[in-house]
Design a protein around this nucleic acid. Structure first.
Lengths: 337, 337
DNA sequence: CCCAAAACTGGAAGCGCTTCCAGTCCGTTT
DNA sequence: AAACGGACTGGAAGCGCTTCCAGTTTTGGG
């Protein structure tokens, strides 16, 4: 039945005619704008129902000069970035906010040369009314591109270089400092860190917080290894760390994935956690609850990040000038420290 | 500077004027259609460059009656479905294919009542040129909705009820059978299974494959517990299973997440894997490589699913009638069996 | 050198909806 | 009863691009 020659869908003109009013009036009734008498409004509504009329979003977009969509742009060198549940959470948060509007979410992975070009196009053609950008690396050209495009843009996490006016972030420095201070409070003195990529703001900020805590406590021990925020990368980094600093008694991993990897490596190496080595993570992802042992971690409200980015974008699109937002982190004590 | 009164962007008319040709010719040159002399074509291209002209996608969409986008609709009762890296892979696969076209990807989470309504709207208003649907539960109304909408639609995995003409799936029955046969070949005789949700086709199909293998081998032992495809759910199910069937000597988990959960529970319960209990999963996600011990699993080409769904959708949109596709699975032997 | 076929051209008609603006109607105010 | 502000109306002008079609110019064969 669906194969029937797809009878052309009714237009607003037909609705107007059937209701015996002008197209203008029909449009007003449709959008329940003022200046339509009660009678006509009802007549139009009835006609709409009878005809099964559905407004054409493209035509509306052309007339109103609004795309009716916002984009979430995820950068990174590998399409596998999405394997990180982190983004899933952000997307979920964004979705819940967008559900309340009539904006669609277009997802762009700027993970290949081709992808970057597509994003550029998206920005230039103004195919969306606003964009959210995430996980930009050091001098990601997307940053300036987005800023220059004149499209409302909010960033998830500050880009490493360049100031951006609108962003949502968590206090990475403070969170990391709390993490390391927690380890210190447990009596650890040879505290190593598995950092994130150091060409990202989040990677550096967490490292900085860690170092601040060490300095403040007057601890001279320094040991670190860079990871890539994946569990696998965390394993490799932990192995390297263990080889170079076999005497470490605690590890601050810059995220839970890497912490989970570290736990495995420590387990295989025969180090008891937390007896021999205490481990703390960052994120508060589901994985942190089910590691062996359950992971103490610095929890960040990821879903909220998506939600707040979206709210900020909506505000921006509405002509407001929202302030950057720094979300708080909280230490969640479990069994690995 | 971006605050400057946003000088109106040039239109095709202005390009045409500057190039000294008609708008028609300009359009043709732009889309490099035939019937434009070399001279004019070049003049237009030059004007485009000089003016920094960028075509307005909305106007084009209105004129061509094509939205220029396809949707990926993910159903499920919880926005957290996206936490499963599975979808990340599918999205990545879809993206790589779409990158080669000029279609955008709009992502819809039909995970709430509001979300369902939005999807319905999306379908009715024809805001996209095609849709891909995933993870539909038993009698998900989305199935018939999508079919009735008259929009090209391809399904990821067969819906439980109702035949759909276009879908991409893996041979879940066969894959599951291989898994259990593998366990049997390792000499196991008391083989339990952690099933997926039994109101999904994938959940039932894998269970069926498991049972087929048992029947074929003449093994009378039956033990199963339903999970929800999450690691956490796998843990709960494994605990229940262990309590009711303490004598089991092998477990087929319907996906890797649950298998990972099962491994943890078995570890805590003091059962050695694979010595006491052999475990096999399904999916071949990254997690299967880093569990302790590394997990033997039935690998399915997830990225390809996204890719092939997209290709199928493109074919459908091009007026072809592609055949459903069943992707093969392969057994990946690691250390848990 | 003539004529039909092939290759261009560009005016004009949309695609479906929003919104400005010049009016029309009415109930009040004085 | 004349004047007035406010609530409706709907014709018409777009929004920016594609494409049909009738007409014009080139080509190429005979």
């Amino acid at each position: 039945m669906t194969e029937q020659p797809t009878r052309r869908r009714p237009t607003l003109d037909e609705v107007a005619e059937r209701a015996g009013v002008s197209r203008t009036a029909a449009s007003r009734a449709l959008n329940n704008a003022p200046n339509v008498s009660r009678d006509k409004r009802e007549a139009v509504l009835r006609a709409i129902k009878e005809l099964g009329y559905v407004p054409n979003p493209t035509a509306r977009a052309l007339a109103t000069q609004q795309a009716g969509a916002v984009a979430l742009i995820i950068s990174g060198e590998d399409p596998a970035v999405l394997a990180d549940p982190f983004y899933g959470q952000v997307i979920a948060g964004a979705s819940t906010v967008l559900e309340e509007t009539d904006l669609h979410l277009v997802l762009c992975l700027a993970t290949s040369a081709r992808g970057q070009i597509r994003v550029k196009q998206l920005l230039r053609t103004r195919a969306v009314d606003g964009v959210m950008l995430m996980s930009l690396r050091g001098d990601d050209p997307l940053t300036s591109l987005a800023l220059a495009a004149g499209v409302p843009a909010v960033f998830g996490g500050k880009p490493l270089h360049g100031q951006v006016p609108y962003y949502v972030d968590v206090d990475n420095v403070l969170g990391a400092r709390q993490a390391t201070e927690h380890l210190i409070s447990r009596g650890r003195t040879r505290i190593a860190t598995l950092t994130g990529p150091l060409d990202t703001d989040v990677g550096r900020a967490r490292r900085r917080g860690h170092l601040e805590a060490l300095t403040l406590a007057g601890l001279p021990y320094r040991a670190e290894e860079a990871g890539d925020f994946t569990e696998r990368g965390g394993m490799a980094a932990m192995e390297a760390l263990l080889a170079r600093h076999p005497d470490l008694d605690a590890v601050f991993a810059a995220n839970d994935n890497m912490a989970a990897g570290a736990l495995r490596v420590l387990g295989r190496a025969g180090r008891a956690v937390p007896a021999d080595v205490a481990v703390i993570g960052f994120d508060g992802l589901a994985v942190s609850e089910i590691t062996e042992p359950p992971l103490t971690t610095v929890h960040q409200p990821i879903r909220n990040i998506g939600r707040e980015m979206t709210r900020m974008l909506l505000a921006l699109m509405a002509g407001e000038r929202p302030s950057p937002l720094i979300l708080p982190t909280t230490l969640v004590q479990r069994d690995s420290t």
